[in-house]
Design a binder for these strands. Structure first.
Lengths: 333, 333
DNA sequence: CTGTTAGCGCATTCAT
DNA sequence: ATGAATGCGCTAACAG
């Protein structure tokens, strides 16, 4: 029972004294990469136990033996897609014996900046960035700065679920083709008037929606019908209601969450899914299963894992497959 | 454009040289807690910019100026309840200017042990622990060891959503009384035969279910009817099916997730909610809103925040209120 | 106001 | 096989 006073951590020195050896010897048995007499080693190990010694990472790091740390920066951990990616990152980091830092920005640029500064100070070996972005010049400039800043500190930046920017590597998923496939699915069920629900009401779209919209249009062979909506259930509800007098036989919601809102809107108007209107989403969250929603599966956990591998050990498949998951929200026309 | 080679971080020394001052001066303008001539300060700031200097936390920590770091240890970040608690922890940590470490154990005791060891090495100022547990002697012994180990390193352990153990502080929520209230709600709607769905099929229950069950029984005034089930949707489905020939007018699922499974089971048997059977859950997750589930709201984010405050700045309300959220899954008998 | 210096805890030559 | 000494980057006395 150590029970020492607060703040009085045991140091290597004390262990050495206790074991009647030098600090170098203790350090050696700890590292285990250098010959130490069996008997001495035993004695040292006893002392370590007895004193409940715990190494100080900071001192270690300073002396050049830092454990790698990978940081995962996301807008909001409450979003299921991100939480799943985080799970993948955690797992892979653990496999690599790396410490894992999960940081949220709440979509606030200031906070994001602070987080990055902090990560540089922490000497993070890698930082993985996830979350939708508008791929414009400003973004490119920003991300390039970040990457350079990190590189200065011998740290790598990896994008997750976004296109690579400049020479910044990324793990993507087949977003456009997933959208294409599920639109095809709708089409092959006889649907023609398919409403795409998602995207900004004005201004440029994030790469996420832009790609999904592109896939939708490629399958359709024409611009189709688009109703803007944020990536929330509430917005899905509101925006579909706004469109509801119109006639379409199916709705492609940009996200499962949006689909959930759309579904509620449909129900509120006395329309049934899929009897009256077919509905598909994107992401394949828990929600999709609950609602029997046909959707596109995005391998978020795999993306997290892949991003860590890319960051820590170099090359890696950089665009993961998506697949449509058929459930019960689509009916043939 | 710094663009230095990887690994070649800029040090205080270099900044000092560049600015033609001593390291002490640079350190001072950095800390800003000591008078420095305006002109000198300016010169130093220029150099810092020019060299893109970033302080090394490890060196700082070794020198005694460590930023506090609070760790949040949970079984699985994909679980919404935990993700919400994590959000609260993140926010509060940021407010305190503390670094936030989120670590998952996957419910694996070995991994949990490794995580704790790592946290001690990191000199975490506080570690917050969440996740169901069976409150037996073994657990008590374990947690006490952990707490002592942490205390050795001048670090505090705080429990979250569990009862305090020994002198280890905790942030709880009114679990039993929430269960009592929602059972009352059912009762005042005329229900008498209410099935409690949750808990282990054999062996001791976690404190979480035990308390909910206790509240249920207190409201009922007798032991009631209990069908065991894990905290998963799947289990809710299976276990309710197993019980379905029996007649009860309402089901109290130990968790929203379990309720979702129960609901599916009911539907699969041609029973409608709430017309044929009323259903309530616990937690008030996103799912509950989607399903129109009447449930008990647990303030997970607040708990996370409170835990951080407790850990970092002492006293704090330690048991948070719960409340029943009435939606559409209960019908009067 | 500014420079010099002594640690912080540990890993690592270099001696022995 | 073991011990003594050096340095990692920074802060905080301590001198000027």
């Amino acid at each position: 029972m150590p029970g020492r006073q607060g703040g009085n951590r045991v140091t290597l020195r004390e262990v050495a004294d206790h074991a009647q050896v030098s600090v170098a010897t203790v350090s050696r048995v700890l590292a285990g990469n250098y010959p130490v007499a069996a008997e001495t080693r035993h004695r040292v190990e006893q002392s370590i136990q007895a004193l409940d010694y715990v190494a100080n990472v900071h001192a270690r790091a300073l002396a050049g033996v830092a454990p790698r740390t990978v940081a995962f920066v996301l807008p909001d951990i409450r979003a299921q897609a991100f939480a799943h990616a985080a799970q993948g990152v955690e797992e892979a980091a653990a496999e690599h014996g790396a410490l894992c830092l999960i940081c949220t920005t709440q979509g606030d640029p200031e906070r994001e900046h602070a987080v990055f500064q902090m990560l540089r100070e922490q000497r993070a070996s890698a930082v993985i960035l996830i979350g939708g972005v508008v791929d414009d010049a400003e973004y490119r400039a920003n991300i390039t700065d970040l990457s350079r800043g990190l590189a200065t500190a011998d740290s790598r930046l990896v994008l997750c679920g976004r296109p690579p920017a400049g020479d910044i590597p990324a793990i993507e998923y087949a977003n456009e083709s997933g959208a294409y496939s599920i639109t095809q699915h709708l089409i092959s069920s006889g649907h023609r008037r398919i409403l795409f629900l998602g995207g900004p009401s004005s201004g440029p779209a994030t790469t996420t929606v832009a790609d999904r919209l592109a896939g939708y249009r490629r399958a359709l062979g024409h611009p189709g019908w688009v109703q803007p909506a944020d990536f929330t259930r509430e917005s899905g509800y509101q925006q579909l209601c706004a469109r509801l007098p119109e006639d379409f036989t199916a709705v492609f919601a940009a996200t499962d969450l949006v689909a959930a809102g759309a579904r509620a809107a449909l129900h509120a108007h006395g329309l049934r899914v899929p009897e009256d209107v077919s509905l598909v989403g994107y992401d394949d969250l828990e929600l999709a299963e609950e609602l029997g929603l046909t959707t596109v599966r995005v391998p978020y956990e795999d993306m997290g894992r892949a991003a860590v591998r890319l960051a820590l050990s170099g090359r890696e498949h950089s665009v993961l497959e998506t697949s449509v998951v058929v459930r019960t929200s689509v009916a043939p026309l």
